[in-house]
Amino acid sequence: MTAPAASSAIAAQLIALFAVLMLVLQLLLVGQRMLLTSIRLFALQSLFLAGIAAVIAFFHGAFHVFVVAVLTVAGKVLFLPWLLDRQVRRMRIGQEIEPLLNFPTSMVVCAALTLFGYILARPFTALERLGNNTLAVAMALVLTGIFLMFNRRKAITQVLAWLTVENGVMLAAVALTTYGMPLVVELGIFFDVIVAVMVLGILVYRIRDTFASMDTSKLRQLKG
């Protein structure tokens, strides 16, 4: 490690702070009732992910991580939220989110999942090199994200939940390897996520057209 000890301690603290803020935003997302606010919360969460990458790039002088940070800002903080926002407004989707489980129950489930994330990450704390418990936060993001996918009826909120799972996976990559994955792989993942949201957007549009609703619990015809 080329950076002096003092600055790398600051880096570790910043990363831990950003990671915890990502988790806080995830929990706010679970409790959020308004669709447009949820999109902003996701954008903010992605901003902190980009922040972590930027901190690593700055303190360790790794250029390719800086590219990842810029891509995250461009894609997940600006473009995707803009795309989702526009779709919500154009299609005049109702603002209420209508979760399947009510708010207190969801919070209890998410607390349990966060705890489970910590337990899952415990054997690997020896391998972590960035701050404390970054991996545990990442696992918690993945688990609560999956819960969020099943706890939402509206198609767009499921897409949003999937994106938070993706954020968790990227955080895990940073937590375990410091520099993330090779740039070409990161580019591939970035491209896939963008295209995935666009494809999902097309489907949401068509579902809305056909069912006059975005409620995926109405997609119940195929059985057995």
């Binding site: 996918m149 999937w162 996976v169 995935a196 068509r206 579902i207 056909t210 997609l219 015809q221 195929l222």
Partner: peptide, 21 residues
């Protein structure tokens, strides 16, 4: 673009994407 094919596509992409994550 039938209701059933949209349902199938939605299930496919949501479960597939979750699995792939």
């Amino acid at each position: 673009n039938r209701p059933t094919s949209l349902e199938a596509a939605w299930k496919y992409i949501i479960l597939g994407s979750l699995g792939l994550a």
